[in-house]
């Protein structure tokens, strides 16, 4: 819950609600990007950005190298799989 997982924004789904689709090692889901959008980074400019995702919200922008290192760490901690399963589970 606390570590977050890196993903890449591949599409903006709802500009007003600031919802984007991310790809996390092949798992895709929509997340909220309100916390990383500002005047300097308007919504539509975020496509392609790497972000750190906490419980469905992008909490920080990182670079591709940081993303790769963080993913490797999560795999080592055996957290990556768990997190990705939770991410891909639809609310039911």
């Amino acid at each position: 819950m606390c570590l977050g997982i890196p993903g890449q924004i591949i599409e903006i789904i709802d500009e007003e609600k600031k919802i984007a689709k991310v790809d996390v090692s092949g798992v895709r889901r929509s997340i909220n990007i309100a916390c990383i959008v500002d005047e300097e980074h308007p919504c539509l400019s975020c496509v392609g950005d790497w972000v750190l995702i906490h419980v469905g919200f992008a909490m920080g922008r990182i670079d591709a190298e940081e993303a790769a290192k963080t993913m490797a760490l999560l795999q080592e901690l055996e957290e990556a799989q768990k997190e990705m399963e939770a991410m891909s589970r639809p609310p039911s």
Partner: peptide, 10 residues
């Protein structure tokens, strides 16, 4: 009781 990944899912 349902497990969710995000408050948005709730």
């Amino acid at each position: 009781i349902r497990m969710v990944y995000s408050p948005l899912d709730a």
